[in-house]
Design a binder for these strands. Structure first.
Lengths: 97, 97
DNA sequence: GTAATTATATCGGATGACCGATATATATAA
DNA sequence: TTATATATATCGGTCATCCGATATAATTAC
């Protein structure tokens, strides 16, 4: 419990999946987008394992070009995101203005 | 990482604060509302410590009537919720349809 | 008055999200 | 070619969330 009453821990995988669904990205782009939204940079030790989990769950495909790896959603990832979004919206109904 | 790609761990305090902001409630009512939203019941060992944290942070006032305790937001709790909601909306911008 | 039910509370332990430091590999600069 | 910067990845450890079991206290049922 931080001073802002919640740390929103446990939402990183969901957020990554959502971000990649809007546009295929590589890790650095995902990190930058999270900085814009959360105001703080996720540690590489946080971000890349989270990406790896999504990949191992079959939710992300990767295309390696040189040193960058671009991630896209698999069909299974799209489905998982749909389910998670529906759940998310139901839980937090009314929070958004 | 569960099969739905996120467990939304770390959001319970925020959710409780939001629910109580809409209507003063006691613990059982909060639990029932969470069941409706998440589809599963929070363990008492989860719910009551979370409430206690919010109370000790100065975000909740309590009025005891018999065996039930009704919680309301303190001014500080209202302010914390406002800050947390703004943060939440910024992070998850675009997730809601 | 005793038993059963309900609401609140605590405890120990497990899980896993997260961070900082560090490692590797590719690309760029000098 | 050597040095630097960038992108990705891993490891060890910490901390908070969460659960199941259990406890307390008040209410209701009998």
């Amino acid at each position: 419990m931080d001073e802002e009453c919640c740390d929103m821990r446990g939402m990183l995988g969901f957020l990554i999946l959502f971000l990649v669904s809007k546009k295929p990205m590589h890790g650095k782009e995902i990190a930058d987008e999270i900085i814009k939204r959360k105001g703080e940079k996720p540690s590489p030790g946080t971000l890349y394992p989270a990406i790896k989990n999504l990949r191992e769950a079959g939710f992300l495909d990767e295309v390696k070009e040189g040193k960058t790896i671009t991630y896209t959603l698999t069909p299974s990832g799209k489905k998982a995101l749909t389910v998670a979004k529906r759940k998310f919206c139901k839980i937090f109904l009314g929070v958004f203005p």
